[in-house]
């Protein structure tokens, strides 16, 4: 009973919040609704019994990625509404029709679901985090290490890319500075 209520609550709220993210004109509204939708998605993971995945979703997505976005927001002018013009509606129509067709094909494809055997089955009586750790550090050790290396490379490239010309102001208008300077000179 609780599972059903939670599932429908989470799904309606997530879909609504992500619609706000995609359709909103304001960057700040989009970002906050994206963060709230990610919190609710971790709720899905907790319902599904993937406790560790839910915690990772909270820590990495809501904690790290959204913090990164909000810090990057300081570089851009976030208060101004985004003006977008869709120049080619026919192209959007064709692309949307094609992707809908592909989605229907994917969902209508026959699944041979009886033949699916659990490769790394979950164990009863063992917590999800322990189970995940056992599989991650035995069967998926090399992808795990490669992912760690990838994160290191991403960190270095992020620092190098964003760190250039950090002393220059982006959002402030330079002509305003000149105006202040000339006013000081007049005095």
């Amino acid at each position: 009973m609780y599972e059903i209520v939670a599932f429908y609550l989470f799904s309606v709220l997530t879909i609504g919040l992500f619609l706000v993210t995609v359709l909103s004109k304001n960057v700040l509204y989009a970002m906050t609704s994206l963060a709230a939708g990610m919190v609710l998605i971790s709720g899905f993971f907790f319902i599904l019994g993937a406790d560790f995945l839910g915690v990772v979703q909270l820590v990495v997505y809501v904690g790290a990625i959204m913090a990164l976005y909000s810090f990057a927001m300081m570089f851009f002018d976030a208060t101004r509404d985004i003006k977008e013009k869709n120049t080619n509606p026919a192209l959007v129509f064709i692309l949307g029709g094609l992707s809908a067709f592909v989605l229907v094909l994917m969902f209508a494809a026959p699944i041979h679901s009886d033949a699916i055997v659990a490769l790394y089955p979950m164990h009863d009586g063992i917590g999800n985090a322990q189970d995940v750790g056992m599989v991650l550090f035995t069967k998926y050790l090399i992808p795990f290490e490669v992912a760690a290396l990838m994160l290191l490379v991403a960190m270095i490239s992020g620092i190098i890319l964003a760190g250039k010309k950090m002393d220059l102001s982006l959002t402030e208008d330079t002509s305003a500075d000149d105006e202040i300077m000339t006013k000081k000179d007049e005095k």
Binding site: V60, V153, G158
Partner: peptide, 10 residues
């Protein structure tokens, strides 16, 4: 996704 965001935002 985390590394994509780090590089992409840069």
């Amino acid at each position: 996704a985390a590394s994509e965001v780090a590089v992409g935002l840069g």
